[in-house]
Amino acid sequence: MTVDTVDRRPNRLQPPLIFGTAILTLMLITALLPQFVAPYDPTRFDYHATLAPPSLAHLFGTDMYGRDILSRILWATRIDLQIAVFSTVGPVIVGTLIGTLVGYYGGFADIVLNRLVDVVVTFPFLVLVIGIIAILGPGLTNLYIAIGLVDWVFFARLARAEILVQRRLDYAHAARGLGYGPARIIFRHLLPNAIGPIITYWMTDMALAILLGSSLGYLGLGAQPPLAEWGALIADGKNFMATAWWITVFPGIAIVVAGFGFSLAGDGVADLLRRRE
């Protein structure tokens, strides 16, 4: 008897994953080494070229102080990528852990978590985060804290649901029947099988975090000047919309491209995990 060799593994990477990871990789390089990518110092004033429209010297034009928009957008990548990662990494870990334990053990903790989820989803996310920042004060660190306080609930809900499915499968029963301890069953058996949708949601959540970070930056509650941040850049240009559209439009496009990158990568990862099952 031979092992049958139907290969169900993906042998070809799909376009969404390729495009998504390409965008994210470029963003990452830019974020790590903006001084090599950006043509100008993003904080240098140039009073000879204020509000200059896009030209060969300044591809995306300049703002009211003559700062190069392209350079500011590229430097802002660092801040916005930071927002994407720093504001979600805590919620992913804490939420997944709580959701996993609640899903496995159930009981009173399950009731508490579900009511908490009900409360949190009742409020619009942005309103809740603004409310917390109103208490903590503006700034990036407080932005991370504010998002973290709310966001973990969604990961907990997702992890709980996934674990509930996994723990009813026979392999989980088999692990119990083999005399394995709960820590081994949860972290070596159930979690690896439940983590796929969580990673996928994390990708989407990072896109949402960038949107949220730029919204708050626009409102002046996120990154503080002179830090370049896409939402803050848009806010800079809002008074010149009629005369210097390039100050607002190009950072807006940057946000769209970043969101697109995360979404495509998330889709690609989800697809990859599905076909590996």
Binding site: L169, Y171, H173, A174, G179, N193, E277
Partner: peptide, 20 residues
């Protein structure tokens, strides 16, 4: 030890093995 000495084999060969 009891769990070790009394082993169960399951009906569904598809869900009874950890896919990872």
């Amino acid at each position: 030890q009891f769990n070790r000495r009394v082993q169960m084999v399951f009906q569904d060969p598809y869900s009874s093995l950890n896919p990872r």
